[in-house]
């Protein structure tokens, strides 16, 4: 079983490689999109690299449940509804959602994930897969 520190180091390496950023930029609180400049297509690359680095399988929508965005029950007038936030908490237990929930604009959703969230995501995957 990898320690938290080992997971963090490997996640950093994946992000440095996929986003061509320097080591010091990849801090736990850095957001992937805003701080590290990830574009949507980079998430595909990141998913492949995480799978390889940790020998895990990441099904579509698990890291980024984009289907929620098009469900009118969960999103209304460009904002997540209470039910939508509840769904996000259920589907993204690895993400720090408290601050986002204060003003849950859909346009800010893409910039939600941080490096620390990615580490928690990998930890959960490893636990699920008994790694």
């Amino acid at each position: 079983m990898l320690t938290k520190e080992e997971i963090y180091q490997k996640v950093r390496e994946v992000l440095m490689d996929a986003l061509a950023v320097d080591e010091e930029e990849v801090r736990p609180d850095a957001t992937l999109v805003g701080d590290l400049g990830a574009e949507s297509i980079d998430f595909l690359d990141i998913v492949f690299k995480l799978e390889k680095a940790f020998n895990i399988k990441i099904p579509r929508g698990e890291l980024f449940p984009e289907d929620i965005l098009t469900n009118p029950q969960f999103v209304k007038d460009g904002k997540f509804t209470e039910a939508g936030l509840e769904e996000l908490r259920k589907r993204m237990p690895f993400a720090e959602l408290d601050q986002f929930a204060r003003n849950p604009l859909v346009q800010d959703f893409a910039n939600l994930l941080t490096v620390a969230d990615m580490c928690r995501f990998v930890e959960l995957k490893l636990q699920q897969q008994g790694g």
Binding site: L44, V47, F48, E51, K52, R60
Partner: peptide, 10 residues
Amino acid sequence: IDAIHPHGAA
């Protein structure tokens, strides 16, 4: 091919 998914391939 390293990996092939419903959403793409590496």
